[in-house]
């Protein structure tokens, strides 16, 4: 499937991926994936497990080494024809995106505040400024007064919100979510989805891999349905959810109907 509106001459997409390919051993996990994400948009990626959704995010955030294709941030090549930019340049690209993991991956030996603030401070930012920013983010995440707590003292939902604050404290241009609620008890998913929804309202650019269909439908500007390493269908969430064109999409969505 061709990518949507990346070559219209206007400002380049924050993220464009072209013909991305990735295999694990001989298993092809991503075959010719192309997509682009515009500033201020929320793109949801849905699909059955094993479809390559997470691998796609992990390639975009350089945690997985893609075998071929292009990855561009703001029109600059991080990956060009399967060749990565220099190490120092990749480090610079890394400051443009944030990633929220399924299992939070907070640092257990750090307080909430240190989890959120250490990375920007290590990058040379003023400590007081970063702390002020971190506290503000925590407040926004509904975690005011919890800055001295340690991750084990928090619920899963709270931990994930700390992880979101940690990613945001780096002031990324685009934020990736890799199944942010899949490791949470059902009653805790709401509080995490709420903050993501709030970020969407503030026009934060986000790519969300999720199994929360109503959420994806309500929040996204675009939905991408992936299966077996290819983008089967993508478009307006209402179109994809209410009126899917592809049989594979219909089949997948049927499972969520009840």
């Amino acid at each position: 499937m061709a990518e949507i509106n990346s070559s219209t001459g206007a400002a380049p997409s924050i993220l464009s991926i072209r013909s991305l390919q990735k295999s694990f051993d001989s298993v092809s996990v991503l075959r010719d994936i192309s997509l682009s994400v515009e500033r201020g948009n929320v793109v949801s990626i849905i699909g059955p497990s094993g479809s390559g959704k997470s691998t796609l995010l992990r390639c975009a955030s350089f945690l997985e080494h893609a075998d071929g294709g292009d990855i561009l941030y703001d029109g600059e090549y991080a990956l060009h024809n399967g060749v990565y930019a220099q190490k120092a340049e990749l480090a610079r690209f890394r400051t443009r995106f944030g990633l929220v993991f399924q299992n939070f991956q907070l640092f257990p030996h750090y307080s909430v505040l240190r989890n959120v603030s250490e990375a920007p401070i290590l990058h040379g930012e003023n400590k007081d400024e970063v702390h002020a920013r971190a506290l503000e983010l925590l407040k926004k995440m509904g975690l005011e007064g919890r800055e001295k707590a340690y991750p084990y003292q928090l619920s899963g939902g709270q931990q994930q919100r700390v992880a979101i604050a940690r990613a945001l404290c780096m002031r990324p241009e685009i934020l990736f979510f890799d199944e942010p609620t899949s490791a949470l008890d059902p009653e805790l998913t709401g509080e995490v989805l709420k903050v993501i929804r709030q970020l969407a309202e503030e026009r934060m650019t986000m790519v969300v891999v999720t199994h929360e269909m109503p959420f994806a439908k309500a929040v996204s500007n675009r939905v991408i349905f992936m299966a077996d390493g290819v983008i089967v269908e993508q478009g307006d969430p209402k179109e994809v959810f209410d009126n899917p064109r592809e049989e594979r999409t219909k089949q997948f969505l049927r499972v969520f109907e009840r």
Partner: peptide
């Protein structure tokens, strides 16, 4: 867990910072 290395990497910790701090 390998996720600890990945979280640090995405946040821009260098390899030495990751090892010593995380």
């Amino acid at each position: 867990p390998v996720g600890q290395y990945e979280a640090a990497e995405v946040l821009g910790y260098t390899r030495i910072q990751t090892f010593m701090r995380i």
